[in-house]
Amino acid sequence: MLPQGIQRPMQVQPALGTMVANLLREMITNGQFEPGEHLKEAAIAEAMSVSRGPVREAFTQLEAEGYVELRRHRGAYVAALTRVDVEEVHTLRGAIERLAAERACTRMGAAEFAEMDEVLERMKAVDTTIDPDSAVVLDLAFHDIVYASCDHARVQRVWESIRGQVRLFLRARNINFPDFSEVGYPEHRELRDALAEADPELARAAVDKHILGAYERLKRLDLP
């Protein structure tokens, strides 16, 4: 029971601009908007039944997160993948995933490995018809378990802040190199087996090897 005179706080809904940003972010990472596509403020406001103000707020938020580029007198455009983006997200992901893996490998129990093995079985069952987005869902589901198991709230928050951009990069990798049915299962199985050894040094090395493959493929693309 609350002390006398203190009222229960009202449940606060996210600001409208944040709600619009969340929806647009999801649409961008799902490929519903393509890199370089013009995001028309009026059309989005009408489609979402909001005024233009929240849409402009959403554009500003998404620009700060790297999803949108605001061009003077021209409006908002979906940010295109660049070599700098690839290098920065790869190095940041590597730093936090090494830490996550070295902590997770000594904390994961039977339940966590069972969850991971379920994802691996789904990877093993895919064939060449798997679409790029479904492959990304499986890929991220595996890595989400590592981060959830690392028992480090700040690492998890950093992962959540870049997860959408990692999703974009993995999607680009899968579109341009449609070999997930061949490499998805064995590459993730190797990382899983390294984590099972409960050796932080081995886990760090396995992460380096694992994420380098996607990075090297993206570097081969003709990016600005």
Results as ranks from 00 to 15, higher is better:
V20W: 01
V84P: 01
V119G: 01
V12R: 14
V12K: 14
D117W: 05
A172R: 04
G36D: 09
W159V: 03
P54G: 05
V78D: 00
M116G: 12
R103L: 15
V183E: 11
N22E: 13
A100F: 01
N176D: 12
D85Y: 00
E57D: 13
R93G: 08
R173T: 09
L221F: 09
P132Q: 06
I175S: 05
V136K: 01
R98P: 03
L170V: 01
Q165G: 06
R98G: 08
Q7I: 05
M19E: 12
L62T: 03
V78Y: 03
R220W: 06
Y215Q: 06
I44L: 07
D179A: 12
F142I: 07
L221C: 12
F169H: 11
A148Y: 02
A194F: 10
A104P: 06
I162M: 13
E37Q: 15
Y215F: 15
V119P: 01
K124W: 09
V84G: 05
A125C: 08
N174K: 06
L170M: 07
F59M: 02
E41H: 09
H90L: 05
E97V: 08
G75R: 07
R154I: 12
F169R: 10
V136N: 01
P14S: 11
L81D: 02
L92Y: 02
Y185I: 07
K124R: 15
F169V: 03
N174W: 03
L140T: 07
R217V: 05
H188N: 15
M123E: 04
R25C: 09
A196P: 12
A110Q: 10
Q4S: 11
A58S: 05
L223M: 04
A196C: 13
Y147K: 09
M116R: 10
M116I: 14
S181M: 00
E121I: 01
M10N: 11
R103G: 00
V146R: 00
A141K: 02
L168W: 03
E216F: 06
V78L: 06
D193N: 15
E160T: 07
G164S: 06
F142C: 06
I162W: 11
V136H: 03
R122A: 02
L170R: 08
T106L: 14
R220I: 07
S161F: 11
G31W: 08
L39Y: 02
I6W: 10
R217N: 10
A76V: 04
H152I: 04
T18N: 08
D85F: 00
E69S: 07
A141Y: 02
V166M: 13
E112D: 14
Q4R: 12
A205W: 07
Q11H: 10
T91Y: 10
F169Q: 14
A110C: 00
V78E: 02
A104H: 05
E160C: 06
T60R: 13
W159S: 06
R163K: 15
L191I: 03
R171L: 14
D139G: 04
L202E: 14
K40S: 08
R8P: 08
A45P: 02
R71P: 01
E112G: 09
V137A: 09
G66N: 04
T60A: 13
V20Q: 00
P224L: 14
V78K: 03
V155P: 05
A153M: 06
E115R: 15
R8L: 14
E87D: 14
L120N: 01
R25K: 12
L212R: 13
L2I: 11
P35H: 05
